[in-house]
Design a protein around this nucleic acid. Structure first.
Length: 557
RNA sequence: GGACCCGUAGCCUAGCAUGGAUAAGGCGGCAGCCUCCUAAGCUGCAGAUCGCGGGUUCAAAUCCCGCCGGGUCCGCCA
């Protein structure tokens, strides 16, 4: 709805979009008068005079969603009309689960997580998963046909080492109920420790990589066993976090299906390949210091060769391709993009996120220095359970609520921070629910549910929104609710999912504000029905918002 | 050495893309609010040289340059 209002304002002004912005002083504000006043300096008119003149020439009557417009301090402040407020509430209640949906169309591939299958996900990996999954949910809401991929790096040196580790140390004690990804990590960490004193292991790993790339049967089976074990545990963790991938795409498939050969041939035909033992791509024309090696002297390919092949495939199947990557891949991402351009392929859009580090320094799977996502989930769950231990819920309900609150807290804590900001993980903060978190939003939603439930129980479920009795607080809330699809659209464009987290929190805060001094069920009927409509619309919007954040909208907590 | 990202109250963050009207939340601190729709809530107070220095502009947290601090990258690793 807000999108329509904005469209009307821009159209009325027939100005560039950038001069119309959200403001504390109005629903939308026009800032163009400053510029115009400056451009016509010789006329010696203040921005305020210019704003007034522009305003007097606007034919606002034809725009049903513009309620008022006023020139103040050089700005033109626009506020929405009664009709806008009424249509917003009607639309929300009418569309319900569909509220906020757009019909942007198109196909998009979102690749995220893609952690090496050499151990469990740690708290750095899930920053990736949560950003990727939230983007996927928001893209789907925008009406884009989304496919999500986990790109499995089964051909890397790490995996070869993990295989070696499993050969030597086995894959955990079958009787112990250890998650398989943790078992892989154990073997991987152990072999890395051995590697420090035994250089022959290096050669052994290299031999293994050659054999795997050549596709030797028994080696392939061995790799599969290890990778699948890691993936099994990883998938379980992701499920806990409400993250799901449509497909797991194994890197090796691009060797097996000939895409890598096709790409290498294409590179050669375009004269991009330098062969001197190893095969390299020279990008010095673009200012790169070093050549990019795509094939080793021993004939095996490097990660980037398979990745170019993967992106060739992405180009063939999707209009838009988005990768979520750690910022350590920035140079790599640029190289990949530039090589793809040389092949007349469209580079992926990449969302880079900065590292999650521990107070004592950065994490490392290899050295066993990390906090696993499983451990985080478990501890946050226990903390959440502690809070509701004494409540009048059944044991089953308590567990469900604790899980929803824990997962929500984790997802929200990660998604609310802009991807480009480095994070330092802090247990105290992660376990603290007395702060702005998902539970605050879930709580606001549960409150709205509770009011609606009680209204039905009391036999007065009728809703009748009346814009004319809307006070400032209510108006503010309704306008905020109207922005849902506007925010969705922004995120699809800007790839900044943290903005959505902020938006949903804003609704919860505004609703709590409204709640404290707007009795609903005890108000006389006209106001009761009016406020009940607002409460229900807020409930729907919060629920849909939580859904896009992958957080369960609890009805009781 | 070169490149990229970050630097906003004691702490964590929003705002920076597209400069604009009093820099916004939370935690922690202090003082309050449950005979009233869920107190996982709400109110008030204290707390900011927006890292530092220049510049552009009528206007800079936001744009440009330099510096400082933290992180990352510059592999025939992924």
């Amino acid at each position: 709805m807000f999108r329509e209002f904005r469209k009307q304002v821009i159209e009325a002004l027939s100005c560039e979009e950038r001069f119309v912005r959200e403001s504390d002083h109005a629903d939308l504000a026009y800032t163009g008068a400053f510029k115009i006043a400056k451009e016509r300096k010789e006329e010696k008119r203040s921005p305020q005079e210019v704003a007034e003149e522009i305003l007097s020439n606007l034919a606002l009557e034809i725009y049903d969603y513009i309620g008022s417009a006023e020139a103040v301090n050089g700005y033109i402040n626009f506020n929405v009309s009664y009709e806008f407020l009424e249509d917003t509430i009607d639309l929300i209640l009418d569309e319900d689960w569909n509220y906020g949906r757009l019909k942007l169309g198109g196909e998009a591939l979102i690749e995220h997580t893609s952690a090496n299958p050499d151990g469990p996900l740690h708290i750095g990996h899930i920053r990736n998963s949560i950003i990727g999954d939230t983007l996927a949910r928001i893209f789907r809401k925008a009406g884009i046909n989304v496919t999500t991929h986990y790109y499995v790096n089964d051909m890397g040196r790490q995996v070869a080492l993990a295989v070696l580790g499993v050969r030597k140390y086995g894959l955990g004690d079958e009787k112990q109920e250890e998650k398989p990804d943790h078992a892989v990590a154990k073997a991987y960490i152990a072999i890395n420790r051995d590697l420090e004193g035994d250089l022959s292991l290096d050669a052994e790993a290299e031999r293994l990589m050659v054999e795997y790339e050549e596709g030797r049967g028994e080696v392939v089976e061995e790799f599969k066993r290890v990778v699948n074990a890691a993936l099994e545990g990883i998938t379980e963790t992701l499920q806990m976090l409400n993250v799901e991938h449509d497909d797991y795409v194994w890197e090796s498939q691009f060797i097996r299906n000939g895409y890598v050969d096709k790409v290498l041939k294409e590179l050669e035909e375009k004269g991009l390949l330098v062969k001197d033992g190893a095969w390299k791509i020279d990008l010095s024309d673009l200012g790169y210091e070093k050549e990019v090696v795509v094939r080793r002297e021993n004939g095996t390919t490097l990660y980037i060769a398979r990745d170019i092949a993967y992106h060739l495939w992405k180009n063939q199947n999707f209009e838009r391709s988005i990768n979520v990557l750690g910022s350590d891949h920035k140079l790599y991402g640029r190289q990949l993009g530039d090589i793809l351009k040389k092949l007349n392929l469209k580079p992926p859009e990449i969302v880079f996120f900065e590292f999650v580090s521990l107070p004592e320094g950065s994490m490392s799977t290899r050295r066993g220095k990390f906090i696993s996502a499983d451990e985080l989930i478990q501890k946050v769950y226990e903390e959440a359970y502690e809070i509701i231990r004494e409540r009048e819920f059944s044991e089953k309900e308590k567990k469900e609520v604790a899980k929803a609150v824990a997962v929500g807290a984790i997802r929200y804590d990660f998604i609310k921070v802009a991807p480009e900001k480095p994070m330092v993980f802090d247990w105290k903060q992660a376990l603290d629910f007395e702060r702005q978190t998902a539970s605050y939003i879930q709580y606001a939603h549960a409150r709205a549910c509770s009011i609606m439930r009680k209204a039905v129980e009391a036999g007065m479920p009728d809703l009748e929104f009346n814009p004319e009795i809307c006070d400032e607080m209510e108006r503010k809330l309704v306008v905020l609710l109207s922005k849902f699809s506007y925010i969705v659209e922004r995120i699809v464009k800007e790839l900044r999912p943290n903005v959505f987290a902020d938006y949903v929190l804003d609704i919860a805060m505004t609703f709590n504000d409204f709640y404290k001094d707007h009795p609903v069920l005890k108000a006389e009927s006209e106001y009761r029905m009016h406020r009940l409509a607002i409460v229900d619309a807020t409930r729907v919007t919060l629920r849909n918002g939580l859904e896009l954040l992958g957080i369960e909208p609890l009805e009781k907590m």
